[in-house]
Design a binder for these strands. Structure first.
Lengths: 247, 247
DNA sequence: GCTTGCCCCTGACGTTACGTCAGGCTTTAG
DNA sequence: CTAAAGCCTGACGTAACGTCAGGGGCAAGC
């Protein structure tokens, strides 16, 4: 205990680091940052070395780690830092993606309500599209890691929306054909089937990993979350299948 | 109470909407979504109209509103929806920005620790840069709303980093000049001052609103948070001032 | 020696949006 | 009639502190 080292009281120290005193208390209790000394009356005393640690904590928090994780990382002196960082980056990217879609949803909603009066109907339709995009999340488990990344890479909002429109359009046409009792062997049916395969191709982008994931996804249909409605009826599926489409 | 309307029990209803029963309980207690009927024994019964409302709730949640806000919005039947959406969009964009910087920080950190062994020193330096960016947040209060938006619009990570490098470089050179006792009236000094003004110009982009905010920011130096260190010493400032630079 | 004012301390509850028991009915299938 | 499901209402847990509340400590002026 060399008394020649400068030490700070709580407020001073907190201010220097840009946090509140309460935060220091909190970290103290969690064992994340203990002051290097106490006065006889129980005042916390911090020194420069404490500041360094506090800054590490703040940094790791900035990156999105929880205080628990931070504690572990610091205790291990950063042995698993690399893997932790990789994981964290993925998580953050997902969150960013989510926020991006939220912004999109808001912008569309703003368009709708600026033109007409507050129209919950249109608003809801917009939302459905957006929700579908986020529903994609649960499909991730079927794709390999690299496939997921590839999908995410080109999942721009525009592309997603176009894809959804295309599918909606095609499905409607097929439904009409089914209702009209169209022969699955007819030219029209085969043309529909061709377009169907085409859209699937568009989605997979010809990537075998993505095809693989998609296959797994469809194979496990019984395990789909209940709120996810298959976009086409069984009849439609059967028709396309009979017409020679379907992967 | 027409019994010809289909009604769902908690689990069914929840599943249809993609939420849990507990969530329904929660919303019920908050008065956000009351089931349209109860059985004699207290079971909740939901109908299609409830589903519509629940979807609105889910949607608004997706956009990032809190349940409280959602309740208000729904109670007012969306009278303030437009303003609420605008506010929300800004908030989300800020969050996205933050996450973007976090990703950046992680990527840099990954570079550092992949080449050398886990090096907290280098890591910390990276962090300082990043923190500075996020420190920008507290400067917002000096800028007008539109100025803030303009700044945010072109605050890409690359631009920020280049700016910081440029400043660091210039400040170092000025420090050297000061240490060498350079005459503020010399050509070299004037050249430095010119570069100084230039960087300021680059930051303001010639926009008067931004200049305004920057001026206010510097005028209020005594109120800066203690953890924000002015990037250059008083001597450096005086030197540049004497050399005819400075805004 | 005492008061004033400022800073410090330790609880303890509040916040958000539910998750997760725990204890106890109701309904339905066998 | 009983067991398996499904439902209900509390009530506590979570993350990271913010915000009192109640009670000392410490330097300065009277």
């Amino acid at each position: 205990m060399k008394s020649n080292e400068i030490s700070y009281q709580a407020q001073q120290f907190a201010t220097r680091a840009g946090v509140t005193v309460r935060t220091l208390h909190h970290y103290d209790r969690l064992g994340l940052l203990k002051p290097s000394a106490y006065t006889g009356s129980g005042y916390r005393l911090y020194r420069e070395s404490d500041l360094a640690r506090l800054q590490q904590i703040i940094t790791l928090k900035f990156i999105g780690f929880s205080l628990q994780e931070i504690k572990l990382l610091l205790e291990q002196n950063g042995r698993d830092l690399a893997t932790a960082l990789r994981r964290q980056r993925k998580i953050i990217n997902q969150k960013r993606h989510h926020l991006g879609m939220a912004v999109q949803a808001i912008e569309k909603a703003e368009l709708v309500i600026s033109s007409e009066e507050p129209d919950w109907e249109a608003f809801k339709k917009i939302i459905e599209v957006i929700n579908m995009q986020s529903d994609m999340d649960w499909t991730r488990k079927y794709y390999s890691e690299s496939a997921t990344e590839k999908l995410a890479a080109r999942a721009s909002p525009e592309v997603i929306e176009k894809g959804q429109n295309d599918w909606a359009q095609l499905i409607k046409e097929v439904e009409d054909a089914v209702r009209d009792g169209e022969d699955p062997a007819s030219d029209k049916a085969r043309s529909l089937a061709a377009r169907w395969s085409n859209l699937i191709q568009q989605f997979t982008g010809g990537d075998p990993e993505i095809s693989e994931g998609l296959k797994k996804l469809y194979a496990d249909q019984s395990n789909w979350p209940a709120h996810f409605q298959k976009p086409y009826s069984d009849e439609v599926g059967a028709f396309i299948c009979a017409a020679g489409g379907k992967k």
